[in-house]
Each structure stands twice: as structure tokens, then as C-alpha cells.
Simulated scan of single mutants.
Amino acid sequence: MPVKDLKDLYLDQLKDLYSACKQAMPVVTEMGRHARSRELAEALIAGNQGIARGIEVLAELCERHDTDPTGELCKGMEGLALEARRHAVEADFVDEDAQDAAIIAQYQRMVHYAIAGYGCLRSFASRLDFADDAAALQECLDHTWSGDRHMTAIAEGSVNEAALDGK
């Protein structure tokens, strides 16, 4: 679809982020199964719940604008998902705590991609005077930021130290 204006760009980016979130969910599930830290595993479950809610919101917004959210493949998240599997799930870890640190790093890379996507979409929606869209996207953005901060707290609170000590 050719992008003629900001609305076309908005719709294109809604579909792209929908694809990104759909690709992220199974990887987050895999990382959760490999997490040694109970706190980390629980945070990844919560993260997947947030991703699922984001998918619902993005699908609702697409429906509101008579566009199908499917059919797009987000190449950015495709690469991030491959990297997450390679570096956090499939890598040969001697120290399980180091694997937890890798899981957090890879999760946060994917989350930061989503933060950028939600932020841009919210800005586009505001400019297009789609106030309800902007509010829904802001809620997704806030939730995603909160999850990112929680992962940082887990990393700095216990995981990185345990990985350093090789416990």
C-alpha cells in the first residue's frame, strides 16, 4: 500500500507493531521457560499478558479504521526475536544466572522496539486528532515502560549480581 499521508503511515505502523507483538509473544514464552529466577519468570509472564493486551488494542484500532492488522511482517522484530532465541535461549550457558541476565537483555531490546512503536503511533494519533486512539496507545506505552523498569529492577536487584558471582 502506498503511503500518501500521515494517516496511511499511521495505519501501516499499526499493522507493523501488531506483527511485532505477535512475533514477540512466543519468544517471551520461551525465555520464561528458561528463566532460573522465579521473579524473572513471573515478570515474563506479566510481560506476555501486556503484549497480549497490546495486540488486542492494536487490532481494535485497526478495526476502527477499517484496516486488517494481519498480513504485515515486521522485519525489525523478526530480527530481534531471532537474536533473543540465539543469545538467551539456544546459547550454551555454563552459568544459569548469566542466562537470566541474557534473557533480560534480549527482552528489553524487544520492549524498547515496542516503546518506540507505541510512542510514534501515539504521536501520529494525536496529530490526526484520533483522541481515543492516542489514549489507548498511551496506556499501552505506559504499561510497556512499566514492564521495562521492572526488568531493570530485577536485573540490578539480583540477576546481574548473581551472574557476576557465578552462583
Score class of each variant (00 low, 15 high):
residue 160 N to M: 08
residue 122 R to H: 11
residue 52 A to F: 04
residue 42 E to D: 15
residue 87 H to V: 08
residue 2 P to M: 12
residue 113 Y to Q: 06
residue 50 G to D: 05
residue 72 E to G: 06
residue 149 R to E: 14
residue 149 R to Y: 10
residue 45 I to D: 14
residue 24 A to D: 06
residue 139 E to H: 12
residue 39 E to M: 07
residue 70 T to D: 09
residue 46 A to Y: 08
residue 166 G to T: 02
residue 2 P to A: 13
residue 79 G to P: 02
residue 76 G to C: 05
residue 11 L to C: 10
residue 84 A to D: 00
residue 6 L to E: 01
residue 147 G to P: 01
residue 98 A to M: 11
residue 85 R to F: 09
residue 13 Q to T: 14
residue 73 L to S: 11
residue 76 G to Y: 04
residue 99 Q to G: 02
residue 20 A to M: 07
residue 24 A to G: 06
residue 3 V to Y: 06
residue 87 H to P: 03
residue 65 H to T: 02
residue 47 G to T: 07
residue 128 L to V: 04
residue 166 G to S: 03
residue 83 E to P: 02
residue 124 F to T: 05
residue 10 Y to R: 03
residue 127 R to N: 10
residue 10 Y to I: 04
residue 28 V to K: 00
residue 69 P to W: 04
residue 103 I to S: 00
residue 145 W to T: 08
residue 87 H to N: 15
residue 9 L to Q: 00
residue 65 H to N: 10
residue 105 A to W: 05
residue 96 E to R: 07
residue 164 L to F: 05
residue 48 N to S: 09
residue 13 Q to H: 15
residue 91 A to F: 09
residue 41 A to S: 14
residue 160 N to L: 08
residue 70 T to G: 02
residue 156 E to N: 12
residue 75 K to V: 14
residue 130 F to M: 09
residue 90 E to Q: 13
residue 19 S to H: 08
residue 80 L to P: 04
residue 12 D to R: 12
residue 97 D to V: 00
residue 83 E to C: 04
residue 101 A to P: 03
residue 157 G to L: 07
residue 136 A to P: 06
residue 158 S to F: 09
residue 87 H to S: 13
residue 108 Q to A: 07
residue 127 R to H: 11
residue 84 A to I: 06
residue 82 L to Y: 08
residue 28 V to F: 11
residue 37 S to G: 04
residue 14 L to E: 02
residue 52 A to D: 13
residue 157 G to K: 09
residue 129 D to V: 10
residue 28 V to S: 03
residue 166 G to Q: 01
residue 147 G to T: 07
residue 154 I to C: 05
residue 6 L to M: 12
residue 18 Y to H: 15
residue 145 W to D: 12
residue 83 E to T: 05
residue 26 P to L: 02
residue 53 R to K: 14
residue 130 F to E: 10
residue 122 R to V: 03
residue 45 I to R: 13
residue 120 C to P: 00
residue 58 L to V: 00
residue 76 G to T: 10
residue 11 L to W: 07
residue 56 E to A: 12
residue 160 N to F: 03
residue 90 E to I: 02
residue 52 A to Q: 13
residue 146 S to G: 12
residue 37 S to K: 04
residue 38 R to K: 15
residue 123 S to D: 12
residue 119 G to T: 05
residue 88 A to P: 04
residue 101 A to C: 06
residue 50 G to V: 06
residue 154 I to S: 06
residue 86 R to K: 14
residue 8 D to F: 02
residue 130 F to C: 07
residue 132 D to C: 08
residue 160 N to V: 08
residue 145 W to M: 13
residue 6 L to R: 09
residue 131 A to E: 15
residue 10 Y to Q: 01
residue 104 I to Y: 01
residue 13 Q to N: 15
residue 145 W to H: 14
residue 117 G to I: 01
residue 163 A to C: 07
residue 138 Q to E: 14
residue 4 K to H: 13
residue 144 T to K: 11
residue 43 A to G: 10
residue 155 A to Y: 03
residue 86 R to P: 02
residue 154 I to P: 00
residue 2 P to I: 14
residue 91 A to W: 08
residue 67 T to K: 01
residue 72 E to T: 15
residue 145 W to K: 15
residue 119 G to P: 00
residue 125 A to L: 09
residue 44 L to F: 07
residue 142 D to I: 02
residue 19 S to Y: 07
residue 100 D to L: 02
residue 85 R to Y: 08
residue 142 D to M: 04
residue 93 F to D: 05
residue 44 L to P: 04
residue 100 D to M: 00
residue 159 V to M: 01
residue 53 R to G: 09
residue 143 H to A: 15
residue 54 G to N: 06
